[in-house]
Structures are given as structure tokens and as C-alpha cells.
Design a protein around this nucleic acid. Sequence first.
DNA 1: TTGAAAGCGCTAACAA
DNA 2: TTGTTAGCGCTTTCAA
Lengths: 339, 339
Amino acid sequence: MRSNPVTLADIASQAGVSKMTVSKVVNKQPGISEATRQRVLRIIEELGYTAHPSARALAGGRTNTLGIVVPSIGPQYISEVVRGADLVAYEAGLDLLISTTQEDTSHERQNVGRLSRGLVDGLLMVLPRSLDRYADALKQAEVPVVVVASANTTMPFPLVDADHYHGARLAVAHLLGLGHRRVGFIAGRRDTTASLERLRGYREGLLTAGLTPDPVLIRPGEYTQPGGFAAARSLLDLPDPPTAIFAANDLSAFGAMEAIKDRGLRVPDDVSVVGFDDIPQANQVHPALTTVRQPLVEMGTAGTRQLLNLLHGVGPVTNRLVLPTELIVRASTGPAPRT
Amino acid sequence: MRSNPVTLADIASQAGVSKMTVSKVVNKQPGISEATRQRVLRIIEELGYTAHPSARALAGGRTNTLGIVVPSIGPQYISEVVRGADLVAYEAGLDLLISTTQEDTSHERQNVGRLSRGLVDGLLMVLPRSLDRYADALKQAEVPVVVVASANTTMPFPLVDADHYHGARLAVAHLLGLGHRRVGFIAGRRDTTASLERLRGYREGLLTAGLTPDPVLIRPGEYTQPGGFAAARSLLDLPDPPTAIFAANDLSAFGAMEAIKDRGLRVPDDVSVVGFDDIPQANQVHPALTTVRQPLVEMGTAGTRQLLNLLHGVGPVTNRLVLPTELIVRASTGPAPRT
DNA sequence: TTGAAAGCGCTAACAA
DNA sequence: TTGTTAGCGCTTTCAA
């Protein structure tokens, strides 16, 4: 902690030029002689000068920083999206500031307001649910906003998301192709669009194959491992249990696998399991999880690119960018057991 | 994105008072009549005013924001520390801004400089390695700094860490108590103090029991799951393989368990495994991992409390706070097999 | 190619 | 209890 930071004025007086000249050098603006530039640059180096971001922001300059708002940084899928965002931001010479809302409404609205007022040049929202809670704050945002992997909304911001519906169709088709006829579904959170879309894909996948979705085969899993465990257990308790389980995310699929093993059954010999997300761990469990891959990193990069385009007023900005999902077949799915 | 933000002046003129009065109301300062306060508060609410953080910072006020610098947000243990920090920050009415360095030196030094200049009131550094790379930036920091779960350093900042050495001793003692005599060690990264301390605990644990550490039983694991897998495999390939493996972190312990199963051996019947960290997943693998618990959340909260004390100039600030580690015995360890 | 003036929105110090 | 003055460090605008 030191008390006398180097300012523009310090550099200016040391170099014997005006503050403006230094400012132009720092910001790589034209109209400065090479000699002056070099001299100023040397002094900057010597004194270890860094622009004060707040002063810069206040004076109407850019902050060279992008903000990303997430509910929390625990879930793997969020860190993947953030990683993608960081990649692009870094490439563009911008820094990325992460802000967690901890699912607290007042906290989060304040965050958005604060961030958008001079802290960042643009905002990436990664909020799987309840984006509308921020409607006010977001409308007041003074910077461009892009929404990634978030709950649907009527707000007029560019959206980047994955094709949850189609991914679910792929998963169901895969299981049906293996001969399964009773396929259970472990749902996610009702307040996320993603979960609802996956459920819709599950239902329509069955209908398309001429099967009637049985409500008793649909259980809430809350996207958690214990939730998946409990859901799978209740499915296995049915008089006519499913031979395959499709979980709305990988975490609840892990829980389902535990429950199956816990019953003395084997995956996939007795019950097949499919997840959704393809977090790194999906390939590390035993048996390795067949899952629907969401392009999480790509969602982060794509969203950030949109933001940059918005920022520079150049390049195309797609209002709704839906990235494809993909079925990754591993070892947790197999042919339906003969009865 | 809107273009006419509400400012202090707007509120002041609407309320027919001076800017200072509004400022005092906003900052809950005394010396304002209740009537005025109410009126101002109402207008603030009506117009949806939020203070401009940069202006505030520039004017010498506080930003009400703490910064936390981490290498990346992927690793579970980091999000645990961040969660702890967020808890305390939130409780204190402060926001937490996370900044990732992506292990890039220039990136990170810039980050620290930028953050400490008007963006945050205090800085929490969570950098398992190479903290000294930031020496310059940190010395120039204009805000208090606390170092958490980071590589050792000669820098004069309060430190919060876990007792890696003692934790390793506990793990080794546990294994020796189960009758194991050949205990392998999967090391972490050489550039982290934590890893070296755990290695030291391993060595001295053996020595204390009258055993000579066999260099051939120590393998690099790089703190990763594949690293742990490879390390365990090479240990099992030895003519005289270990009956127990102590891994420097949970991730590499997971890899070791995979390698053991891959060999057709069982955990813990044939080989026992102990990890380090106790990330949530440790309790979710099969068999559940015996591990040394680092109080990660507590490290985050303790570090943030230190920072707050530093900030307010009150309360004790411990220069070096070493939190205890604890052995969590689960199912991955058992008696040494009889030969 | 360079610089002077003004002001971003806020708070500190003081005055009324 | 309230208001005035000054200025944080920077960039914008415009003039030299």
C-alpha cells in the first residue's frame, strides 16, 4: 500500500510536455512526434505509471474491461463459459471482471448497476434463471449487454444459447435406437428455460417414436447430484421401472448412476444413463458418461465476440445465436436388457 | 444501454437541496433532518439513482468493493475459497470482484495494478504459485492486500494458509496405522509451497516411524487427474509396488483410483488411497475418498476478515494465519493386504 | 504537433 | 442542518 501514485501530470511535468500529450501517447493516438513519444514512453516506464481506471471511466474514456455476471463460480459449466469469455477478452486486450450474484436479487441488481456505470465497457450475463429480475438494472445499463446461457427473456439483448431441445432429441433417439422403451427423465430446475427445453425434447422425442410420455417417469432432480440420486431411486422403485434414464444435466446423471449401483444394478447392463452438458468430469466417471455436449467454451467466446462487435459498432450481431449440441456416446449406455 | 444516467445533481435539483445533502443521505451520514432524508430518498427511488462508482472512487471515497485475484476459476478448491470470501464481503456490505490471471504474467500484473487503482478497496490474492511475480505490482498497490492459499513469499502481507505439513503427517500416520509400510506419494507442482510442504510431511511421517523414504515411491502428479493416473500406474509397475498411495490433492487421487481399478486391483482391498483438499467430489466418488481436509471456505472468510480489519484499521491482523487441516476417513483406505 | 480549458460525478473540508 | 468550494485523474474539445 503506497500513498503517492504516479499520475498523468507527473509524467507530463517530468517529460516537459502537457498532460494531453502524455494521454495521447498512452492511448496510442496519432499526432505525436516520434521523439516526444519515445521520451514520454521512457518516463512512463521509469516511473511505473498506470492510468487510473476510474478517472478514465469518469472522463468518458473506456475502461478496457468487460464484466461477466454469474450466479456463482462453483458449477463447472459456468467456469467453462467464463473461460471462453476470458479467451476472447484477453485476445482483444481487454480484462474480464467476474461478478457473482449469489442468487441474491438486491445483490445482483446492485452489481449490474455498479458494473455498468464506469467499471466495464460491456456486460455478459450468464444467469440460467430469472434474468427478468434484472430487467430494470439492465435497461439502465450504460453499456452493451449480451446474454449467454441464460433463462429466456423478453429483453432486447443479443442472446447466445445452446440447442437444448435438439440435444434432448438426440439423447432420446440414441436410447430408443438401443431398444429402450421406458425412458425416465430427471428434470432440472423449473425456472430455467434450458431445463424446460430439454424436457420438451424428451417428450417430443418419445412422441415422434410413437411412444406416450408417462408422467410417472418424469422426476425432479434440481440439477444436483443428490437430486439425481433421489430421482433415480424413485424411478427404480416403480413397479415398471425404466431401462434407461436421461438426466437434464451431468451432475444429476452422476447421482443417478450412484443410485443404480446402490441398488446392485449395473450401468449400462441393467440401466442406461445419459447426461447433459459434458462437463470434464463426465469423461472421468465409471462408466464414462454418455452425454449431450453443450459447447460451453464456445458460448463464452461467441457471446464475447458479439459484445465486442456491439462495442466497436462493427461486425454482425446476431440477435439469437443458438449453438448446436452434440451427442457424445461413451460407456454409460447400452442395449435395452431383454425381459 | 441508455444515455442519460441519473446523477447526484439530478436528485439534488429535483429535491431542491444541494448535492452534498443528497450525498450525505446516500452515504447514511448524520446531520440530515428526517424530513429531508425522506424526501431525498423518495426521489432517489423514483428516478432510480445509483452512485457512479468511478466518480466515487476518484473523489477519494471508497468503492465498497473487494477484489480477489485467482489464476482461474476452474479448480474446485478455488471456488470454495472465493465462496468464503464472498460470504464475508457480502455480510459487510461489500461486493466482490473476481479477476483471473490465466497464469499470464503481464496480464496479471496489469490486473493487480488496475484493480488497486480505484476499482477495489482491498485485494485478496489466491495464487498457489509464483506470487513473487507480482511483487512490483503489489508493492505499488494502493490498497491493503491479504494473501490466501498462495505460494510462500517474502512480501510483507498478511498470509492465510492451511497446515499442509501437518495434514500430510496425519495422512501418513493413518496409513501406517493401517499396517502399510510401502506408501507411494504423488506429488503436486514443484512451484507450489503447498506441494512441497505436503511432501515434507510425507517424508518426515515415514522417518518418524523409522521408515526410510524411498525416492522411487515419489512420482510427479501435477495436481491433475491424468497426472495422478500416470503416477499411480508407474508406481504399480514397480517390482515392489506400494500398498498405499498418498496423493498431494484429490484430483490426482481420483486418477490414482482409476489406475488401480484399471489394473484389476481394488480400492482399498489391494491399494489404499488418500487425497488432499476434500473437494465436494471427494465424497461422491466410489469408494468415497479418504482425504485431508483443507478448510477452504474458512480460508476465504478468514482472509477477507483480515482484509476488513486492515481496511477499517481495527481488529487484530495476524501476519501468518495457518488454519488446521483434518483427516477425513472414508472408504478408500483399509488395512494393508497380507503378503 | 502540441496544449489550455472544461468537466465527467462524486466527496472532503469547511463555512454558513 | 445545509450549502459552498475545490479537486480527485483523466479525456474531450478546441485553439495555437
